[in-house]
Design a protein around this nucleic acid. Structure first.
Length: 597
RNA sequence: UGCGGGGUAGAGCAGAGGCAGCUCGUCGGGCUCAUAACCCGGAGGUCACAGGUUCGAAUCCUGUCCCCGCUACCA
């Protein structure tokens, strides 16, 4: 709208583990809200960079590799490639979706480590950890099993006993600890690690930051973060005994890597740095990380709140001076962390191991991206857990997309085709009702913008749908089909006004429905695409290469405004935007899940 | 155990002291341009439960129950 004041906005989206395919909960929780927000801001003329990537390190990936009988690298590359394919097809328009297994990310993670060390926020500590003599390696607590010292249950996990719910501070409390992997006995062995001095960072800056100007944060996010920090932090290990990951840039730590929780979040920074490099402007990332007016938003699920509201800000604050001549300069902290709750499926928790979920890449083989995006937006778990149901998907598609919006476009364009040979009619002088309708649509550009800008995407959709209904009501009142013979001027005027309303509406829908809004744009005879293009590219570094999803916004012509479709323009033949789904589809999908009916 | 969020018509949600609202479904009517789509009207709720404050409570207070996440070696 106000291009003179266009802002720099960094859209950060949680990094998915490259150990399984992405389901609808992942999409509605982080990728989709981030994409809607990014597209909206691009339409407004803001400078958006939207980043994420595959989290390629960590135990979950190595465990999956063992299951598959592949190397860890192959496993990460397999899922990473599928992520890229999914996001491109679903229209998740990442400026860069890369991975943590790049040389660039290694370097940035190590740089931040060294800066934290330089600033005195890292300390070494020797602790006893579970070690498997059989496998010759340390094991994380979750892969340790033993007898519960409290109730005697022999299947207690390293962190908790499932029988009596006792929580253990360490797996060392277990009697007879053994490896979950090969059932061999484990012993305690001392190992030295670096710890992040969270209490010191909290005292120096973090506690003050979390209490400053956070009233726009969602209550579940800010209350949790404040409680967490005020409750007292303890030091947290940033290295671990493992061979898959980023080497610790310190002598004598040869068999250790940076802990995944520590390095994965650094991806937001390193991906922006990589993006700048890809764009051919090495310093461009600074406009988002060192510019005090830039906004940085983190779209994540609720399980991720502590990492993005406590640990990551602590890392940024602790690494002050990083990539700056000013030793006190801090990279930009989160402006907002609009975390979502969880989406269930047909009343039960989504579960990969029990095949209970909608695997999005699979779903795209049967459904168009916009109906999936639409249903996930209307059911986005913004304030509480929500539920995906196949019957709900079908109802929303048929009753709202097809019947309300798709039908509106189709009926108006069909009438212009039928009564005016596809040429936009001359309106003549507009009536008060005409002006009122267009004013309502124009108001929508403010009202809906407020919803998108505030990450209230469900409310945004509801408001646009209401405006769409308004146009249907207008058609009912003006009944252009009834006046066609005796008063063609009235018919022309009504269709002209309805067409201008559609011209506005398709932009209001565009962040949620980018594909069909593009179709509408073409049906209105507009040149140039609303948005840029997502492209998978291969990048090469010194010793290795990686695939990434990128966004080419050069040709994007969409603007957050109601563009006037001029009288006299010849419109192309209309075609339906959406396909009605049979009720039987729900049963088919349930059968796919193994639910008989 | 502790911390945080949530429990409002059949479904999904909004409302945060003053007649309980929205979308979808449902029932009845209208229209026929449109993918049997569109428009109008009706029915449907002890606002989780129990106390309390108030002239008045979904809304504020107290207690209880239920769901979800976190509880720090799964981001």
């Amino acid at each position: 709208m106000n291009k003179a004041q266009s802002e720099h906005i960094l859209v950060c989206i949680a990094w998915p583990y490259a150990n399984s395919d992405i389901h609808q909960g992942n999409v509605t929780g982080s990728h989709l809200p981030g994409d809607i927000y990014a597209r909206f801001q691009r339409l407004r003329g803001n400078h958006v960079v939207m980043v994420s990537g595959s989290d390629s390190h960590g135990t979950p990936v190595t465990v999956k590799a063992e299951e598959l009988g592949r190397s860890t690298l192959e496993t990460y590359e397999h899922y990473h490639a599928r992520f890229l394919d999914l996001f491109r097809r679903l229209g998740i328009s990442y400026d860069l979706f890369t991975s943590t297994h790049t040389e660039n990310h290694f370097r940035v993670s190590q740089d931040m480590f060294l800066q934290l060390q330089k600033n005195g926020y890292l300390y070494r500590k020797v602790t006893p950890q579970m070690y498997s003599p059989e496998a010759g390696q340390f094991l994380p607590d979750r892969y340790v099993e033993g007898t519960c010292p409290n109730c005697g249950y022999t299947g207690a996990r390293g962190d908790q006993c499932d029988n009596c719910n006792t929580l253990f501070e360490s797996a060392a409390e277990l009697i007879n600890p053994r490896s979950k992997r090969d059932n061999t006995s484990l012993v305690l062995r001392d190992t030295e690690h670096f710890f992040l001095d969270l209490p010191a960072i909290a005292a120096d800056s973090l506690a003050e930051w979390i209490h400053d100007d956070k009233e726009h944060w969602r209550p579940q996010v800010i209350n949790f973060a404040r409680g967490f920090i005020d409750g007292g932090l303890i030091g947290r290990a940033v290295t671990r005994d493992m061979d898959w990951g980023i080497p610790v840039p310190v002598e004598g730590f040869d068999n250790k890597v940076l802990y995944v929780w520590y390095e994965a979040v650094i991806g937001y920074l390193s991906a922006t740095v990589e993006w700048a490099s890809n764009e051919g402007d090495e310093d461009a990332w600074r406009d988002w990380w060192q510019n005090p007016d830039a906004r940085t938003l983190y779209f994540i699920g609720k399980d991720n709140i502590p990492f993005h509201t406590v640990f990551w800000p602590a890392q940024l604050l602790g690494a002050r001076g990083l990539y700056s001549d000013n030793p006190h300069a801090t990279l930009n902290l989160p402006t907002d962390v609009p975390a979502n709750e969880f989406m269930n499926m047909e009343g039960r928790k989504i579960s990969g191991s029990r095949n209970w979920g909608v695997w999005m890449l699979d779903a795209l083989d049967r459904y168009d991206p916009d109906p999936l995006r639409y249903y996930l937006t209307t059911n986005m778990p913004e304030a509480r857990d929500s539920d995906w149901s196949w019957s709900g998907f079908i109802e929303r598609n048929n009753n709202e997309l097809v019947a309300n919006w798709g039908n509106l476009v189709n009926r108006v364009l069909s009438m212009i085709g039928r009564y005016f040979g596809g040429i936009v009619p001359e309106p003549g002088a507009l009536t008060a009702a005409d002006e009122a309708l267009l004013a309502a649509i124009d108001d929508g550009f403010d009202d809906v913008a407020t919803f998108y800008d505030g990450c209230k995407f469900r409310a945004a959709v509801q408001e646009v749908l209401r405006l769409s209904t308004l146009v249907n009501q207008y058609l009912e009142e003006t009944s252009p089909w009834a006046t066609a013979k005796k008063d063609p001027a009235a018919t022309g005027r009504a269709l002209y006004v309805a067409l201008q309303a559609i011209s506005g509406l398709h932009v209001l829908w565009a962040p949620v429905l980018p594909f069909t809004s593009q179709t509408v744009r073409e049906l209105l005879g507009e040149d140039g695409p609303l948005f840029g293009e997502s492209v998978v590219r291969k990048f090469h570094e010194a010793a290795r290469g990686h695939l990434a999803l990128t966004y080419d916004g050069a040709g994007a012509a969409g603007r957050w405004e109601r563009n006037i479709v001029p009288a006299g323009r010849h419109l192309p033949a209309p075609r339906p935007l959406f396909t009605k789904l049979e009720a039987a589809v729900a049963a088919e999908e349930m059968a796919r899940l193994g639910v008989g009916q």
